[in-house]
Amino acid sequence: MSSESAVDGVGEDSAAINAAGDSGEEPPLRVENLRKEFGGITAVDGASFEVADGSLTGLIGPNGAGKSTTFNCITGVQEPTGGAVYFNGSDIAGRAPNAIVNRGLVRTFQIARELAEMTVLENLMLAPQRQQGEALYRSVLPPFRDGVIEEETELREAVWESLEFFEIDHLAEEQAGNLSGGQRKLLELARALMTDPDMLLLDEPFAGVNPTLEAKLLDRINQLRAEEGLTFLLVEHDMDIIMEHCDPVIVMHQGHVLAEGRPGEIRNNERVVDAYFGEQR
């Protein structure tokens, strides 16, 4: 359900904003004229934006604006119909999702995709990249097996720390399919972080998460930005979170970028108010 109050000439506008935001240094993520069509539906219609290094950038827009589809195209889950996606300078559009994660760009899904018949522990143990034991011969042959066991022991430690942080350690042995909706979102975020990424695309990660924990997770995100230089792109419908934590904010509408700027600017942007906030009230 999208608003009918689309304005012509938006593409030029957003291009202008992008040009203005260019500092000359290559940002971790740059999306250029991204398009995705499903049969007759154009879900993403020439979206262009950048995400600056170490930022917590918000991506907002009405339902069906194309936010999740943009994520899918960036992370290789869906192949874009057109356009380019640069991650740390190289074009990753159309690459396999695993290759993109290997480069350090990981995402979470809007509807949590826990591995239902694996335990919470197994879900997290899966995530770390380049595990020795992922080579069949190392997992099986005695001379290598010791190294695998050693690595597993280390990973196990990290996994438990993560579970405790996300306050789902009491569910560690539970099948992930038995978790509540909010717990699944937590599991998904914890799992994405276990891949040790440079950048995370989070699709409504706080949906169904209680406010105390939500605040704690936002703190953690800010800590990871400050201490490890991670970059976050966050899809969120909760305007309080967007206004308080995200900077800049990108607004999508009908598949393209309607506006981009500081939270205050966005709130006062007439088009955005028409297309999005207008709808919300």
Partner: peptide, 12 residues
């Protein structure tokens, strides 16, 4: 369980 998830966690 879910091959897309496995891929989205970097597994070939």
């Amino acid at each position: 369980e879910d091959e897309v998830v496995a891929k989205s966690l970097g597994k070939d």
